[in-house]
Amino acid sequence: MSRSRRDLVWIPTFAVLVAFAVPWPLWGVDRVVAGLPVWIWWHVAWLGLCTALFSLFVRSGAWERGMGRGRESGPGSALGGDRP
């Protein structure tokens, strides 16, 4: 149960990931770093972070629990639910 409750933290996490994929804090900033405007680097790094956190979301099992199919939800819930 506490596991599912901890999973709720993914909702604000995803919200922040989506919201700040746009580099709002750098609005109007025109510094060039390593050949590209600095806000492009923010975006590149942010999408890298997204992949890292998405991978954690999947590996932690929150992916299945989010659909009510966690290990707690009973036997036979083969993770990933492969087709026969």
């Binding site: 995803f14 989506v18 746009v22 405007p37 492009i40 975006h43 999408l47 997204c50």
Partner: peptide, 24 residues
């Protein structure tokens, strides 16, 4: 080049989240 940000955000992040919420 801001179009990169718009498309990256919507396709790379928001769509991925919807991929789970709607797709899965």
């Amino acid at each position: 080049p801001e179009w990169l940000i718009v498309m990256g955000t919507l396709d790379g992040v928001l769509f991925a989240v919807l991929w789970y919420v709607i797709g899965y």
